[in-house]
Nucleic acid binder design. Structure first.
Lengths: 252, 252
DNA sequence: CGCTATTTTGAGCCGCGTCAATACGGGTGG
DNA sequence: CCACCCGTATTGACGCGGCTCAAAATAGCG
């Protein structure tokens, strides 16, 4: 039932996986996480609000759809997927969250989570209790704007996935998107470990698992990527980008 | 080149097409337009900002993509379509605007219009110069919130169209959506005049024109609707809703 | 009344989903 | 350490929805 330690370890591809201390203002990822763009004094106010969450096991849920929004979360290590139930009771993978990315914005509008979020590997998060966060935003307008931006980003990101592109375009865009997110907002990385099973990718891209498998094979045949189970190497970056050219960047 | 007066007349299906005066605070549609939810005194401040636009001819542009955002517009009479150019230079119909609906929100984020908007028939609009509007919002927080709501609505509305539904579901949802919008936020109307050519509908729903034609024919064969050129009667409302059941409501 | 734009109808093809069978791994118990 | 098992991933066969190409039928307009 649990994934092996090895798998989890493999996903921690960044050497700085261990954050030196537990303060936003000194977090090496802060540059690209919630504190993005905040002046130092405001970032320090985040420290007093933030809490470190307990380590989460594979398949463990951070929260379920329908629960009231208690906090926003930032991924420290590991990876998550967020899922919703469609009108036919079928599970839909809305998206994946990698280290430094924010979780929980889906609950801001209604005050209730629209998605369930669960860990794909052994993972950990930073916790920002929502109430305290909102009290900060009332007099820290930079933070309020940052939250707005992140919400818009989330919306845009989803837009890219649902457009009527073909399987190849969708998949190429997805792989490139992952590669760009591995090093938080740094350079695109050529080596990416996919933290999620094929079925989740297929569901998220709204293509059949078999189609995913075939397109992946085709990409390898064309020399665009090399793939060994969950480890991907991007061989022909330009080629991959060309395939995905019709899909909007979905980044911000 | 111009559409006939008859066509334009046919589209003015509401008897109250002529607005008694030129004030938001006394506009019969104000209940469902920009002033929605505003207390009377704030609605009256809108009056001083609003201007009446000149009558627009079919195919005439309200603004083009790339132009700076100068004003928001509310449709008084007629109908509009908004279009964008995709990365291959191909035109994409983003949406349609009916009387009482707002135009121009696409330019708020960047200060520059993302879409071009043109009249589908002889039409007219109310003009709200953006600068003046923003000056109002700074001390009329209700208006600010109303604008936010409208933006979210726009986003949600678009989401519904791009999902991976099949042609039947998309089309049924589109027709129902139109029927609900004809009488500004009143009851769904059984008789709807489609103000746009088939090609625009097809483009907007991202299906081929031929497919649109065929599905329309099928709907008639199934007794869901009756269609005479651009005049549609919804015969079996429940049936139509059933076909579209997988598509989210897209309304607010 | 002819001309052109729009809409409908028909034939054929292709992408992708479904069903089904097979291969691969990682984990367990002997 | 190996046999076994089950969940994940790949590969093949086939059908259907919807797109494309092509042509016929209307409708709007001069």
């Amino acid at each position: 039932m649990n994934s092996s330690v090895l798998t989890a370890g493999a996903w921690q591809q960044s050497e700085e996986a261990v954050v030196p201390d537990h303060l936003c203002s000194r977090c090496p990822r802060g540059r690209f996480c919630l504190p993005l763009g905040l002046p130092l004094d405001e970032a320090q106010r985040l420290d007093s609000v933030m809490r470190i969450g307990r380590v989460m096991q594979t398949k463990q849920y951070l929260f379920h759809a329908g629960e009231p929004l208690k906090a926003l979360y930032a991924v420290r290590t590991g990876a998550f997927k967020s899922t919703a139930i469609d009108c036919d009771g079928y599970e839909q993978v809305i998206g994946f969250q990698l280290p430094s990315e924010l979780i929980g914005l889906d609950g801001v509008h209604a005050g209730v989570h629209q998605c369930s979020v669960s860990a794909l590997t052994v993972s950990s998060v930073c916790i920002f209790p929502y109430k305290a966060l909102m009290e900060m935003t009332s007099d820290v307008s930079t933070l309020a704007r940052q939250l707005m931006r992140l919400m818009c980003k989330e919306i845009n990101g989803n837009m890219a996935v649902i457009g009527d592109y073909m399987a190849e375009e969708r998949l190429a865009a997805f792989l490139l998107g992952l590669a760009m997110r591995v090093h938080p907002r740094g350079e695109l990385s050529t080596r990416v470990v996919l933290p999620m099973p094929r079925a989740d990718i297929a569901n998220h891209l709204r293509i059949a698992g078999e189609t995913l498998s075939r397109v992946l094979a085709r990409f390898q045949g064309q020399g665009l990527i090399e793939l060994d189970h969950r480890v991907m190497h991007i061989v022909d970056l330009d080629g991959l980008e060309h395939v995905s050219r019709r899909v909007p960047p979905a980044s911000l």
